[in-house]
Design a protein around this nucleic acid. Structure first.
Lengths: 224, 224
DNA sequence: TCAATATCGATAAAATAGTATCGATACTAA
DNA sequence: TTAGTATCGATACTATTTTATCGATATTGA
């Protein structure tokens, strides 16, 4: 089986980010479906109507995971789940550190979903000595001074940053220096990193803006 | 000045969601700039290079807020900030309730940014009697049984749902029944609401997928 | 005063994402 | 066995979003 063809840019065929974002939603729904009733097959039409997504969209999204269905039947639910897992690499787990054990940090440490989604928080860090040494949801909290060394020694690639804005950049620099590859930034400020380091910024304000603008528009529409 | 033209759909001229999501980022940056040095003017080029966004994109985004700049100078920082505030309606605050005072709920209750962004959490609700009556960051916690009545009496439009997945739908139904207009859903399940109710689903799995896919691709690119 | 230049604002092109159409296929039921 | 139908998969089209181009304008420095 020839994987690469004449053009030498074979495997990476540009995955649309919106598709990527929808895949976990399908996944979660499929898992639920499988648990509830052991129905063997499910159609795009069905998935779409339950999740409020057009069936065609669903089909296109699933297509990129290499999933394949049968006319009149739909997709085999178990196969589809595996297909998504394979595509998203949820079979091999990635270890991560979490920095900043405030309320948000603690919430994320307790979030069950991560391990299912291939992310395993193996340690947390904080500067507060009162927290150091304790465990939350089975994850030990270390002093932040140990962070660089532990990143280096364990070869950790993902850092989850749940610290206040004023120290976010400083800690990001520290992690980059120690060789981190990606930072999931929950702090309210944008952090600057060298080229090649991946930053995913979780911005609540952005979401809030979308919500409140939609709300404002729906109110206006009613008034008309 | 004629606002409405021949087609009778004048004011609402389709705001791109990506633009909406970037506006708070500009806003935050501008606030920081203003605080650091009282520089009167700033250009798109400058903003763009600092935030890693193309200058043209910045200009188009700012354009829809009605902001206007001067050639060779750029935009007046204070004017620009006001312009964004006006556009996003951050001058008149919207009251909201938060449901589910776990770690995440508590984190959001303490998040300073919300009030700045026009959202005011005026009360929280939980089913745990140990929490009821207490205050977190100045916000009182009530028993969830009082939720419907209080939504009705206060005319609350936004509900922030930070409960576990298994009870999210039930509480959403409760709120809809009581007349809520919009739900900001932080629970890990998709909730179903009647037409006309706005739901903004904050999905950590989606973000994680984007991050880890980018990471996987950058690793693969290095190997080549 | 006047040329040089940075930047806005408008318009146009390209890229990306979403939606529709239609033939092929596999099941269902007459 | 055969007609009917639901659904996939491929292709084509539309809409949205991003990026590029270019003239106009205000400031700077000679």
């Amino acid at each position: 089986m020839a994987i690469s063809d004449e053009n030498s840019k074979p495997i990476t065929k540009a995955i649309p980010e919106p598709t990527l974002r929808r895949l976990p939603i399908y996944y979660q729904y499929l898992k639920k479906t499988l648990a509830e009733k052991q129905s063997g097959y499910i159609s795009c039409t069905r998935i779409g109507s339950e999740l409020n997504i057009l069936p065609i969209q669903v089909r296109k999204d699933l297509e990129i995971t290499q999933a394949s269905g049968k006319p009149k039947l739909g997709y085999n639910v178990k196969e589809l789940i595996s297909s998504i897992e394979d595509f998203l690499g949820w079979n091999n787990v990635t270890d991560a550190y979490l920095i900043g054990v405030g309320n948000l940090g603690a919430a994320l440490m307790g979030y069950q979903g991560f391990r299912e989604y291939g992310l395993n928080i193996i340690a947390a860090f904080d500067e507060d000595d009162a927290k150091v040494g304790k465990e939350i949801h089975g994850i030990t909290i270390f002093h932040v001074a140990k962070l660089p060394d532990m990143i280096r020694r364990m070869g950790i690639k993902i850092g989850i940053l749940t610290v206040p804005g004023y120290c976010a950049q400083e800690l990001a620099d520290l992690m980059v220096e120690a060789g981190i590859h990606a930072i999931w930034n929950f702090s309210p400020v944008k952090i600057i990193v060298p080229e090649g380091i991946i930053v995913q910024h979780e911005n609540l304000a952005s979401s809030l803006v979308v919500l409140s603008k939609k709300l404002a528009m729906s109110v206006r529409a009613e008034r008309q």
